[in-house]
């Protein structure tokens, strides 16, 4: 199963048309993601990396080129793709439990409860099931959002700068946790981030994007065993290599 290609993006171009002007956000982007792979996409803000993720998620359906998941063209959102947004997007009037239930389509109460239990356990928040989002810290809320995105057992999890709004220490902790989840669930993940170190720490591959229009500049394979050591020489060499990409132009 490993190394089987799951997601294909080929010659993707996306224009935003506002009034009379047309802006090219993504230009001729081609990439793929293998099953059980962790791909990180880095780029400056406004480079279109989030747009790319939204297109894969099916939230933006007007584009040129082709985007296919397991051979099927993406034409809208689907449960086989889970999304974690930069903000947790938990509904403030529902408890953690109710927010998880909201993500479930149908099924018996007992089955649903078990699924919710399992997924809250996964992010270590089982005892917070009756809390309202307003009572959780930013990191905890984002963990619930991850659990919610995983509850329908998606084939691929899309993470759109999920830790961008968290403080530095929480961020490091969350990186460990997402890695643990990725390993445990044997999940396929794409994470968009502007943090190079985060990308090198997590990704099997790091895709570097340029901005305006967004194109793929470089692809760096991170062939380091996990858990990775941030002070490791190779780690820092790779980080430096990606960092240099942003200073080229």
């Amino acid at each position: 199963m490993i190394n089987k290609e799951l997601l294909f993006v080929s010659h993707l171009t996306k224009n935003f048309i506002s009034q009379s002007r047309s802006t090219t956000v993504l230009e001729d982007v081609s990439m793929h993601v293998n099953q059980q792979e962790f791909v990180a996409i880095v780029g400056a803000s406004g480079c279109g990396k989030s747009t790319l993720l939204r297109i894969i998620g099916g939230l933006d359906t007007e584009y040129q080129g082709s985007v296919t998941l397991a051979g099927k063209r993406i034409a809208g959102p689907g449960l086989e793709r889970g999304i974690v947004f930069q903000e947790h997007r938990l509904l403030p009037w529902m408890t953690v439990q109710e927010n998880m239930e909201f993500a479930l389509q149908s099924g018996s109460k007992a089955d649903n409860d078990q699924l919710i239990d399992e997924h809250l356990e996964l992010v270590g928040l089982k005892s917070f099931r009756n809390a309202y989002p307003g009572q959780l810290s930013g990191g905890m809320a984002q963990r619930v959002a991850i659990a919610r995105a995983l509850i329908n057992r998606p084939e691929i999890l899309l993470l759109d700068e999920p830790f961008g709004a968290l403080d530095a220490l929480t961020r490091l902790k969350m990186q460990q946790e997402i890695l643990a989840i990725w390993e445990k669930e044997k999940a396929t993940m794409i994470m968009v981030t502007h943090d190079i170190e985060e990308a090198v720490f997590l990704g099997d591959r790091v895709i570097v994007m340029s901005d305006r229009p967004g194109t793929i500049k470089k692809e760096v394979v991170i062939d380091l065993p996990r858990p990775r050591n941030r002070s490791d020489v190779v780690f820092n060499k790779l980080r430096e290599e990606i960092y240099q990409e942003f200073h080229k132009e």
Binding site: G58, R81, I83, E87, R89, W93, M94, N152
Partner: peptide
């Protein structure tokens, strides 16, 4: 943002109105 979330989660129109629109408007 909740409209998008509901699309991603495949929430039906009726459930969306009951669980998102009305509580939000309360």
């Amino acid at each position: 943002k909740y409209v998008e979330l509901s699309k991603v989660l495949g929430v039906s129109k009726g459930k969306f109105v009951r669980k998102v629109v009305i509580p939000g408007a309360l």
